[in-house]
């Protein structure tokens, strides 16, 4: 059974130019112990989608439709009280994107743990502190930093504090929004290994959001490729890595050079804007057909993978 199921999620922003759909009819699921890497370029709706999973969508954004089912409970429907008390941080937690400024500059690190703990029913401060010390050990930070202020920590250290904070109640699912972007390679690797270890030890499910395909592949058991707010391809990482189906995934995988392998096949994805009528990738797609311009492809299931592209329409299962 799936731990989390997202069904037909659509989120819009109200702008001066009218309604803008940032996430369109998105459906996917994650099972216990899985790591899904959500990959997509800037503006593809990753953060908006992630926030919806922890009910953090606020005006001007609005959830137009969809369900977010955690163990069968629709998180978008239950009362705020029940959500904060029974689900948030206890079952599902979040590591925010722009982490360099996500900690309160006038609070010590320990106070962040205490605030979070007490908000979800952990009364005993000593107990919170004990947990914090253990979690810091897990992310390899000295416990002395509990008495530090955020500005006294490096970017990588802050990032690890945020990961430790997300683990306070050992949730079943953690959503991490670009947790290693803008960090040094060595720090990235270090943090990714901590995440891996966590996943292996506690079977914590992780939704890992990134725009770096290499990092997505490094961590994931499954890949969710987004473009223009829509799902392009969703499936097993190994399979997609070897045999990507969607033209966007194919172009993406061959656009990023690696340290090994043939460089002669490396080719940039054509630059271009998002098509708001039919398939969003239409303007940049090497395989585009006339039908793609004004018609939205359905989600086709090919060998267990989900693909939204007319190329696979004929093979529809």
């Amino acid at each position: 059974m799936s731990l989390l199921e997202v069904e037909d999620l659509t989120i819009s922003y109200k702008t001066t130019k009218g309604k803008f759909l940032a996430v369109k009819h998105l459906s996917f699921d994650i099972k216990k112990g899985e790591i899904i890497s959500v990959i997509g370029e800037s503006g593809s709706g990753k953060t908006t989608m992630a926030k919806a999973l922890v009910r953090a969508i606020k005006p001007p954004a609005n959830i137009d439709s969809g369900k977010v089912l955690l163990n069968g409970n629709n998180l978008l429907e239950i009362s705020q009280n029940k959500f904060v008390h029974d689900f948030l941080w206890v079952k599902v937690s979040y590591v925010p994107q722009s982490s360099q400024n996500s900690l309160n500059p006038t609070q010590k690190i320990i106070e962040h743990f205490i605030d979070t703990g007490t908000s979800h029913g952990l009364r005993d401060k000593k107990e919170i502190e004990d947990r914090a010390v253990k979690l810091l050990q897990l992310v390899r930070l000295p416990k002395s930093i509990l008495q530090s202020y955020p500005h006294q920590l490096s970017g990588g250290m802050k990032q690890r504090v945020l990961i430790a904070l997300s683990l306070l109640f050992e949730p079943e699912l953690i959503i991490m929004d670009e947790p290693v972007t803008a960090l040094d390679i060595a720090t990235q690797r270090h943090i990714l290994n901590i995440i891996k270890e966590l996943n292996e030890k506690n079977r914590t499910s992780i939704i890992f959001i990134t725009h770096e395909i290499n990092l997505a592949i490094y961590l994931a058991t499954k890949l969710l490729v987004m473009y223009g707010g829509e799902l392009m391809e969703f499936g097993d990482r190994e399979k997609i890595e070897k045999n990507p189906l969607h033209p966007y995934t194919i172009s993406l995988l061959s656009s990023v050079p690696k340290l090994f392998g043939d460089l002669s096949k490396i080719k940039p994805v054509t630059e271009g804007k998002i098509n708001s009528k039919g398939c969003p990738f239409f303007y940049r797609c090497p395989n585009a057909m006339s039908i793609c311009e004004n018609n939205e492809p359905e989600t086709y299931t090919i060998e267990g993978d989900k693909v939204r592209c007319f190329l696979y329409g004929a093979n529809k299962a």
């Binding site: 979040y94 925010p96 979070t116």
Partner: peptide, 17 residues
């Protein structure tokens, strides 16, 4: 508008706090 305020909201910290 600061990130640490929206992150506090996401964490479910009560609004008085």
């Amino acid at each position: 508008g600061e990130d640490y305020v929206s992150f506090a909201e996401i964490r479910g910290i009560n609004s008085n706090n």
